[in-house]
Amino acid sequence: MGAHPYFTAEEFAARVERVKARLRAAGVDAALFDEIEAMTWVSGFGSSANRWRCVLLPVEADPFFLIRALDAGVCEQRTWIADIPTYRDWEDPIPVLADALRARGLETATIGLDFESYGTSIARLEAMRKALPKARFVDIGAVVAELRLIKSPAEIELLRRAAAIADEATRRAAAVCVPGGTQRDAARVAQSTFVEMGGDPYRPGPITAGRGWDFLHGHLGDDLLVQGDVVHIELTPRIYGYSSRIMRCVVLGEPEPDRLRATEILRELQDAQITAMKPGAVAEEVDAILREGVIRSGLRSSYDNITAYTLGLYGDAGPRTSDFTRIFHPGAKWVLEAGMVMHVYASAGGAALSESVLVTETGPELLTHLPRTLLVNR
């Protein structure tokens, strides 16, 4: 049985007990998790879906980790789960899953799954039902995603470290955004900084250049930067999968008055929004501070995107680049709680700002600390 290089056995035991409490409340005998974020949070290890894999967590028995034989060794190094049934790459994993459940007396169990899991296709769920005709498969929703909303002290410390990397990587990436340079230079510097400062060797995040403002999630280009360009930098460093984020715009040359004004308005509105992020605050009311303020200012005629989303653990081979388990939007009735961490972001009028924010018992705490303004390379 392996050990995680950062989280303790006690940390995982506490997580599992929280999951089991939810399973008991849902009336299921076991849960099957096959999204990489859920697997990693519960077990300490997750792998790509090149071949299907899952963690099976019974309420009253020991769990097992079903995985392709090729990855069993690295799984053993990271997970606290001792039982790891395997299959060869060309074999169907469902019969192995069925045999493992029968061996544990769970062939007639009620098994909970997240029916919106990107790991469970319609065909795979049907194959499970055929292989285990006496079992009952029910939807328990995104149980782990919900539990992950409230971060442990150890998770918060990783997010603090990731935020420090985001700050420094943004400084360095912005510094190479000069006439004759390229967006790729900024990406190279950012990713190098991630690794140098102890982060995961992962993609840097969106880095795009343009002249207007509607290019925030554009494509990394190879054209040489010229005076007057604006480079949007949104960095997403990770440590053990835990990501903090920051967003700034770099102006090459003297910034236009309208862009400076837009930045000042966004900063003031976002500062007010962040100040309101206290335990008990209703998300739609916090969202409205920025959303309605931007529209009233005339910077945008409509605000069609969210203004914040959940931060935390991201799988290195998952399809989601952001976690929308909780988001700020006009109909968000959920309530902020201490221990939540959110990426708040705003863009309008040729400017963009974002921060990573921890909700504490006494109010919001910025994890990122870069000056909240345009970055200007004259």
Score class of each variant (00 low, 15 high):
16 V>N: 01
89 D>H: 05
228 G>V: 08
327 I>P: 05
21 A>E: 10
249 C>F: 02
186 A>K: 02
330 P>M: 13
298 G>K: 12
176 V>I: 05
10 E>P: 07
186 A>I: 01
64 F>K: 04
173 A>F: 05
344 V>W: 01
329 H>S: 11
27 G>V: 03
149 L>E: 04
313 L>M: 07
126 E>L: 09
33 F>H: 02
206 P>M: 05
166 A>K: 06
231 V>D: 07
165 I>K: 06
51 R>S: 15
248 R>D: 08
214 D>N: 06
202 Y>Q: 09
33 F>M: 11
126 E>T: 11
222 D>A: 15
218 G>T: 07
345 Y>A: 13
124 R>F: 05
91 E>S: 11
172 R>C: 06
219 H>V: 15
9 A>N: 09
357 V>P: 00
345 Y>H: 10
173 A>Y: 01
105 G>P: 06
215 F>T: 02
246 I>R: 08
72 A>H: 03
45 F>W: 14
5 P>Y: 11
46 G>A: 12
241 G>Y: 12
353 L>P: 01
212 G>A: 15
356 S>F: 07
197 M>L: 14
349 G>L: 02
16 V>I: 15
37 E>A: 13
13 A>I: 03
181 G>W: 08
273 Q>H: 13
209 A>E: 03
28 V>T: 05
174 A>F: 01
349 G>W: 00
354 S>A: 15
147 L>E: 02
136 R>I: 09
33 F>R: 00
353 L>V: 02
53 R>L: 13
233 I>W: 01
351 A>Y: 00
294 V>Q: 04
113 L>F: 12
